[in-house]
């Protein structure tokens, strides 16, 4: 079981015939996402990261190139429909992805589409409410929830469909700090239970929670690295319009000034212990 997604030389544009190929939203992207990974995709506005997300969920169809799930090419509408069960997607605006007038009904919406029986729905609803920490909110109306709670409701609705992969398309960008932290925390928990988490963001500091980081710029993949090698490469981030996390800026600045800081630093904790030894 599980879902491995492979993109093979994928190109995409909404209206492929109207634009020269160098202006397309996604350009010649080849990537593999294996079951259980925690991946961040970062890029500035217009880097094609949202288009990529919609390709991974079957909402968009590659204009050129192929998409495989577990080695099988996704061609038909039926394939793409089944893909949506495997790959759930959480959007940016918490308000505009809640369909039903109550928490219970909204969680049920996705399962209804899949044709899950009513008995199963009852069981799954209790499970996912607990998982996202919304037990006791069953009868609440969406407009009585905070932004973070709405986003957790959206996650519950996706989890009830029992996906292998969950895509977060800038899902934290409209939340207050508390809501944001609770969603980031939930992402780690989902990763711990074996779900592939793909977090699309333009905030490098959030991206650093993942194990693997992909940098997109103007529709192409610039970097695709495990987190520990990113530390050495992070200085390049600002050339693609991304902010470099403070700890990395500090690391680079210290080295430039001639301090004896190792260049093998892989995380913030390591940098801190390096600095201790200097004191």
């Amino acid at each position: 079981m599980g879902t491995d997604i492979t993109l093979q030389n994928v190109w995409f544009h909404y209206y492929p015939n109207t634009q020269a190929k160098e202006n397309w939203a996604v350009k010649d992207v080849s990537l593999t996402f294996s079951q259980g990974e925690y991946i961040s995709i970062i890029g500035s506005n217009g880097s094609g990261k949202s288009s990529l997300a919609c390709l991974l969920n079957g909402l968009f169809i590659p204009s050129e190139g192929k998409l495989f799930i577990n080695g099988t090419a996704i061609d038909s509408d039926q394939d793409r429909w089944e893909m949506k069960r495997r790959v759930g997607m959480i959007f940016q605006n918490p308000d505009n992805q809640i369909v039903a007038p109550s928490v219970l009904d909204d969680i049920a919406f996705g399962m209804e589409n899949l044709g899950v029986t009513r008995e199963d729905m009852q069981i799954r609803i209790q499970q996912v409410l607990q998982q996202v920490g919304l037990t006791g909110f069953e009868k609440k109306e969406p407009h009585h929830l905070s932004g973070g709670q709405k986003q957790r409701l959206a996650i519950a609705g996706i989890l009830a469909m029992q996906p292998d992969v969950i895509l977060f398309d800038e899902s934290t960008s409209m939340l207050d700090p508390d809501g944001r932290n609770s969603i980031l925390q939930l992402m780690s928990e989902l990763h711990d239970v074996g779900i592939t988490v793909i977090h699309i963001t333009h905030q490098a500091s959030e991206a650093f929670r993942a194990d693997r980081i992909i940098v997109l710029h103007q529709g192409s993949v610039m970097l695709d690295l495990p987190k520990k090698s990113l530390y050495a490469n992070a200085a390049q981030l600002d050339q693609w319009g991304l902010d470099v996390p403070l700890s990395i800026q500090l690391h680079q600045a210290l080295r430039k000034k001639g301090w004896q800081v190792s260049d093998k630093v892989e995380s913030e904790e390591q940098l801190v212990s390096e600095l201790w030894t200097l004191m």
């Binding site: 959007f91 308000d95 992805q97 009904d105 996705g110 589409n113 044709g115 899950v116 029986t117 609705g157």
Partner: peptide, 26 residues
Amino acid sequence: RRAEELAMAMEARAYRGGIGRTKFRL
């Protein structure tokens, strides 16, 4: 804009009209 985003979100949750749909409310 809301309507458009909602339509996307519904499609992402495997909505495809009434076919093969079960109902939660009884």
